[in-house]
Design a protein around this nucleic acid. Structure first.
Lengths: 225, 225
DNA sequence: TCAAAAGTGTTTCTCTTACACCCATGT
DNA sequence: ACATGGGTGTAAGAGAAACACTTTTGA
């Protein structure tokens, strides 16, 4: 018998940076959203509960990351990863939570080292997954421009992509479709909007690897060795 | 509070087939080695214990696979994967175990569906890992021929590799070194023996991907699309 | 008319794949 | 001598990467 906890790495991308959701509990520094798993509750359900209760975010699809067992005494922690469009999920602190906020990965507040390790796992998984699944589509609102899509990939993969190659590959993969309208709010030529063709089913099968590779792997632009 | 179990997928390769270790407990069909995790024991340590006690195999490096929580009531199961050279680890049944044996993946005995699912996870992980880490070196005895190495990859990847490409890639990757001697026990030209240059550190870093790809990806020979 | 972002094809190169014959030994 | 498995190089093709200018809008 052991105490079992869930912890959540909820990741989004904003302004070209990957961000994670952190909560602050009364009298403590920042931490990942999480909770104890009650005796009769499934671990995955408890993860959803913790996210809903701690940060007011519901209906996300969560993926198990790793099970940590640090000391053998206290509890084991089953870490999960969730990807969301940050702008569309303004988090609201639940009961017993002082503050919930997005923090860029490269500008995290003071955190306990275990949480940092969990975040590291999340970041790796995210990057690895980008290589075979169109995760960027989960990180954007329903309508987006190809430049925004590219920016998400660049943030996740931490390298610059070549625009021409990227556009060619994404379009020929057929995972997005143009909505035709164009923004005209900012200076510069307005971009056409697209939406994911995958619609509801973001779960990409392994045999669709070719598509995923196209969308993920689009070539670099003078990257390092 | 929940009961926590460990279960182990111990995989080897023999005669060109991937095999897993199964135990038979009194009055039950086959099952994966495993046990409850005692309260004060780390999960990973418990996994090593279960393998030592159930099958008499020690000192293996184990990798966490996934944490299963099937019903929410009984227990959660943290599954692990271990790779071994089957010939070098003749399993011996521990106390309370009727029989321990290697079974080829394509010829498993009656098993409960949960165990099959865990084995499926192990098989996927193994195949995926072969793409970026030289796992085949863990599946062979200390000295081996390149033909044996190739056979292991073919078993794990479930496709045939082209001998010339395979040898070129493996040798140019520099992960093995010739020991120079040659067997002369069977008919045919004796093969030179090699050993892993990685010696103790089988843990291959991500940035060595190029090497790993070389050893893993060596080209197909008229495989299917 | 200028600043700002969007959009568009072609060429080079590297990596992957395909392929067939001679060599060394045991019987 | 022959049967058996070991060992070797090259050429064609596919996929990845590099590269610069024109277009459309707001200010």
């Amino acid at each position: 018998m052991k105490n079992v906890r869930v912890e959540l790495v909820i990741a989004g991308v904003r302004a070209g940076r990957v961000e994670v959701l952190l909560v602050r509990l009364p009298g403590s520094v920042g931490a990942l959203p999480g909770s104890e798993v009650p005796a009769g509750r499934r671990v995955e359900d408890a993860a959803h509960d913790a996210l809903a209760e701690g940060a007011g975010i519901r209906g996300l699809s969560l993926e198990q990351l790793y099970t940590f067992d640090r000391d053998g005494e206290r509890a084991i922690t089953v870490a999960h990863l969730g990807l969301v469009a940050a702008e569309r999920h303004p988090p609201s602190p639940g009961p017993g939570v002082v503050e919930v906020r997005w923090f860029p990965l490269d500008d995290l507040p003071a955190l306990d080292p275990d949480a940092l390790e969990v975040i590291g796992y999340g970041r790796s998984r995210m990057r690895a997954k980008a290589a075979y699944a169109p995760i960027a589509l989960q990180l954007l609102p329903e309508l987006f421009t190809l430049a925004e899509l590219q920016a998400v990939y660049e943030a996740v993969l931490e390298r610059r992509l070549d625009t021409r190659n990227f556009r060619r590959d994404v379009l020929s993969a057929g995972v997005v479709e143009p909505v035709g309208r164009a923004r005209a709010d900012r200076p510069g030529r307005p971009a056409s909007l697209y939406r994911s063709r995958a619609a509801a089913d973001f779960q990409v099968l392994a045999r669709e690897r070719r598509i995923a590779r196209a969308i993920a792997g689009a070539s670099t632009h003078g990257g390092e060795t």
